[in-house]
Design a protein around this nucleic acid. Structure first.
Lengths: 110, 110
DNA sequence: CGAAAGGTCAACCGTTTGGTTGAATATGCC
DNA sequence: GGCATATTCAACCAAACGGTTGACCTTTCG
């Protein structure tokens, strides 16, 4: 909808929402299944998903009574490009990039 | 200092703070000079700078009565790497990532 | 049909955020 | 010493955030 840098970065600032994105890296999920590993109400997760969708980070499609959530990484591009403007000072760090999948797909989930 | 993804993304979520970072791309600045173009109080800018420093995005060094602020892009690297992890499945974003690497690697050439 | 499952809505609550103002604290300068 | 400059501190405020609960639709299924 209106994925500005504000909304994207604000959406990414919450650990629960980042965990949700990481979960969606593996597969599309229904809202209830997204909520399952978290120790908070379904309504709270529903709100988080709304925020992620408003930021353009996920898309939600209702099929039957189930609402499927899937990753929509385009919104990340805007923010990523913005950040890379500062990257000119960064040394190359492929190690960190490789460590990403290990760390995020491993530890980060509740 | 505790530059987590939480604090980094939260710091980046505010447009004023992103503007400050952009200004600091050009040169190090004193707090008063950072505040000058904004239509808000000096105290407000001082708070923003504290948040940026807590996120590790800037460093502040006091010389005399002037506190100099300089960009500290290392904290961005963590967040950038995190984001790029999502981009790898997206062809469009893959291009951005390749461009990023090309630029970074290009610095070594004469 | 009626009941259960999947989600959202609405109202509420405590905490955080982003801003203000005025006083306070250093530091530099004549 | 005394005054201006640079910056932070403290108290306050409205709005936004992250969560809860209970009521409410919609869809599926026996």
């Amino acid at each position: 909808m209106d994925p500005t840098l504000d909304t994207v970065f604000a959406a990414l600032a919450d650990p629960t929402r980042r965990s949700i994105l990481t979960m969606l890296l593996e597969d599309d999920m229904a809202v209830t299944d997204v909520a399952e590993p978290f120790e908070m109400s379904l309504a709270a997760i529903s709100k988080h998903l709304t925020i992620l969708a408003a930021a353009g980070l996920i898309a939600q499609e209702k099929r039957g009574r189930v609402k499927w959530c899937k990753l929509e990484p385009d919104a990340l591009k805007t923010a990523s490009v913005w950040m890379q403007g500062f990257g000119q000072f960064e040394p190359v760090n492929l190690d960190a990039f490789e460590a990403f999948l290990e760390r995020e797909l491993g530890e980060d989930r509740p």
